[in-house]
Amino acid sequence: MLPVGKVPPEKLRDVVFKHLGVRGERVLIKSGIGIDASAIDFGDSVLVASTDPITGAEKHIGFYAVNINANDVATFGAKPKWFLVSVLLPENADEKLLKEIMSDIDKSAKSLDIAVIGGHTEVTPGLKKPIVVGTMLGEVKKEKLVHAGNAKPGDAIILTKGAGIEGTAIIASEREDELVGVFGKEFVERAKAFLWKISVVKEALIANEIGVNAMHDPTEGGIANGLHEMADASGLGFEVHYERIPIAEETRKICEYFNLDPLSLISSGALLIAAPKENADEIVAALKKENLAASVIGEFLGDKKKRIIIRDGAEKELKQPLSDELWKVV
């Protein structure tokens, strides 16, 4: 039986990636382990396309759909421009729910200067809550195209914002009453507001202009899974320092309360960047100038079997999560 959440990498390799039709003569990059978008040659420019469903949240699901898909496109260095969306509603849905979802999609798209150009809407038998599936298209000059599988040995690993951003917002919303009773209303409102931090479009485009080798937004499985996905895609290992990974107070306390690992909690809003060491300080400074927190948390290694985290001076293997911590509580 498959676990809840993303299909494990070995099953993707053995089943999914063996059934992908023809290669496509203009396809520069196809989706793969850690590769969340595809790139198609259009001469001087490249069309970048990504698709993702929103299944773990109900509130603000339209906002998530636009931003999560925009993030995947931006990690290729591309500006997100066009969005297609399929809205699947449960059988008990009413017009109010549909209007809320579409209003969220509209506002989110406008905030990123994105056109919603098509999609599908239906009431779907068997669903307990809505699911929104988005496809984002973006564009980048060919010479500025990057992807998660191009990290190099010795590259600095830069993390923006911190761990568990999206998971913090989802849990605070879905378990609000319980958490208010434990931590108080003000704390929970701060945690819910993490929702508005999940876009990485701005930081991805800034970093790409300075010069990076690879970028990846860690979604399901959090920072830990994101590091493994970049390493798998690039054929590398990594070394990171736990104390350098920012974990907000709200994230830390919620994870302690539910006994969750913040490094394995869905982390949309964070961006992992692999950059030549000579560019790392400039990237961090440029992001901080735009009030975007960023830290160098480690480096990529040539030995693909060496994937370690250093905590309190001790090295240990950073294992790849089998499932996101979010599924334990929502």
Score class of each variant (00 low, 15 high):
E122W: 11
K129H: 15
K128P: 00
V133K: 04
K107E: 15
L145T: 09
I105W: 10
K129R: 15
I117K: 08
D113H: 06
K129I: 00
S108T: 14
E139P: 00
K128W: 00
D155C: 07
A115Y: 12
I114W: 08
D104Q: 10
I158C: 05
A109C: 14
T135L: 12
G154T: 03
D155Y: 05
A151G: 11
L137M: 15
D104V: 04
I117P: 05
G119S: 12
G118S: 10
H120A: 13
D106Y: 15
V133E: 06
K107V: 11
S103A: 13
D106T: 14
E122G: 13
E122A: 15
V132K: 01
D113C: 01
E122R: 14
K152W: 10
I158E: 05
G118V: 07
D155M: 06
G119H: 09
V146A: 04
M136F: 05
G138F: 08
P130V: 03
S111F: 09
G126Y: 08
K152I: 03
D104S: 12
V132L: 06
D155T: 01
K128A: 10
A151V: 03
A151T: 02
V140D: 03
T124G: 00
G134I: 02
S108C: 15
T121C: 12
G119L: 09
G154A: 03
L145I: 10
D106W: 11
L127P: 09
N150V: 01
I131Q: 01
M136N: 00
L159R: 01
G119T: 09
V140S: 02
K152S: 12
G149L: 11
D155N: 12
S108Q: 11
K107Y: 14
V146N: 07
V146P: 06
H147D: 14
A109V: 06
N150W: 14
I157Q: 03
S111P: 08
G119K: 07
A109N: 09
L137R: 01
M136L: 06
S103K: 13
P125V: 09
G118R: 04
I105E: 11
L127T: 04
